[in-house]
Amino acid sequence: MAHSRVVVLGPQRLQPTLALAVASLGLQGRLAAVTAGWEEREAEDQELAAHLAGRTVNLALYERADGVFRYDTELHQATRARQDRIRRSQELYRVRLAHQLEAARELLRRETRPGYEGLVPSQLEGAILGLRALDAEHVERIRSLHVEFEQRWKPFERESVALQRRELEATLADCAGLCIAGGNVGILLNRLRMFGVLDLLRGQPIFAWSAGAMVLTERIVLFHDFPPQGAGDPEVLEAGLGAVSGLVALPHADKRLALGDAARVSLFARRFAPDLCVALPARTRLDWHELRWSGESGARKLCADGSLAEVGA
């Protein structure tokens, strides 16, 4: 369910803007922090704490999950089995995706080739519809694996998880906001979902960046146009937590995407339309408030014509 107030920021490591964002909402008191995407380094949050003048309380979701798994081995095994099936489903989806994306790119290459005048657009439209259908099918397939898991194992009703949720709820009740850092997007998503953290909030605003921003969307898109191996096909991981709507979050897009390649930008934007595909370099800020997006200058969206435009333009 969409959250009432979310601030999405660019990456924070080198040019932190989080404190400014927190101050802009006039928040007082403590701030809960999620750094589970950093995995074993979860507790190494000294820079974040210093940036927020020592106001943070780390929810330690990674550590809590480890504790749950040590105590509740049945849940641990079930979770691993689920993740294994998700991983394999992702592999199979990737096989189909590679072919469909290559087909769409080949159509784009022929768009300006003599003899194909007027023939490509309708074929390309069909190819993009095919990509959207494949992405949607994948999201649904992974969602059904989660539903099956939750119905069978009822994690929130297990004492191992319920105990942690009670503690988290009490901690969050004392916090003015929740800050979600980046890292491994899969790990971060799973830890937030495992404890149902967003459901424990009482309307406090969320500040999120990098992978933290990605997990809040309705659909998590993995991307990198310059991998050392392979074609760098953007792929859907699975549904996100849905705290915000209509956004594909693209942190570090300035480094990870070929934003000057109009064909790639166009295909990306058309495939994920009508969602806003927004490049989120450092110092960017996007606000989700009353179910609408607004962006400060600098936040740019990928457009169907292959260009980039300021959000709101």
């Binding site: 990456p11 490591r13 995407g37 980046g182 890292g183 491994n184 997007v185 899969g186 990098s210 992978a211 990605m214 993995l222 991307f223 990198h224 991998p227 050392p228 191996q229 792929e235 942190p251 570090h252």
Partner: peptide, 18 residues
Amino acid sequence: LREGLTTLFPGQLMMVYE
């Protein structure tokens, strides 16, 4: 080296966004 190391020990490029 890049091609060799990324072939044999690929990192989590697609999964990590810091």
